[in-house]
């Protein structure tokens, strides 16, 4: 393996991986499957590194590999149920590439926006993502109804989205 290409590949991957993971999640909807396909995508990228032209943008190249790996993954599982049809997958592929700078910017501001979340919103976000609980389990833990937890989560994500995309400050009063 060409050592310089290997080095470039590793660095490019570091900066692109969250966008690739998001792209895979948009198609698979399940993080266990995302991890599996992400790893096979990385392995394929290493195998194909000699085909990569470092003078061309990395993301379209690796997303092409990721797209193929999704197809192979579904074939292996004999899993033909797909949420989105081919036309939507193509639109997702194209739009993910053009939105990559915005998505990376979101990544950089996430910690700051999380810190601005009201305490109650932050608690349900922690339970959902840090502890990996489903809304039903959060409801049991907090002794709330499932609908109340889903509403809290939806609101918390909306606040984070507004903070990340529009740079809106999160204010305690407007949160819940």
């Amino acid at each position: 393996m060409d050592s310089q290409r290997n080095q470039i590949l590793a660095r490019q991957w570091v900066t692109a991986q969250s966008v690739i993971a998001g792209y895979l999640h948009a198609q698979l909807g399940d993080f266990q499957q995302v991890e599996e396909v992400l790893q096979s995508t990385a392995a394929a990228a290493v195998r194909k590194v000699d085909e990569y032209d470092p003078e061309r943008p990395f993301l379209p190249w690796v997303m092409g590999i990721a797209h193929y790996e999704v197809l192979m993954f579904r074939r292996r599982l004999a899993r033909d149920r797909c949420v989105f049809d081919n036309e939507v997958v193509e639109r997702l592929t194209s739009r993910y590439q053009t939105m990559a700078p915005q998505l990376r910017a979101m990544e950089q501001s996430l910690a700051e926006c999380l810190d601005q979340l009201p305490a109650r919103s932050r608690q349900v976000v922690d339970l959902r993502y840090r502890e990996g609980l489903k809304p039903r389990q959060i409801a049991e833990h907090l002794n709330h109804s499932g609908d109340a937890v889903r509403s809290l989560l939806k609101r918390a994500l909306q606040l984070l989205r507004d903070c990340l995309v529009n740079r809106d400050s999160i204010t305690e009063g407007g949160a819940e």
Binding site: S18, V19, A21, G22, H25, A26, F31, Q32, V34, E35, E36, L92, R95, Y96, M99, Q102, L103, M106, E107, L110, A111, V125, D126, R128, Y129, R130, E131, G132, L157, L160, R161, L164, V165
Partner: peptide, 22 residues
């Protein structure tokens, strides 16, 4: 795409115990 990416980032950044395998 924005909401899905937010969901992915939260999972990636915060989920430090191994249910998902990340």
């Amino acid at each position: 795409i924005v909401l899905n990416h937010l969901h992915t980032l939260l999972h990636e950044r915060m989920h430090t115990v191994q249910g998902s395998g990340f």
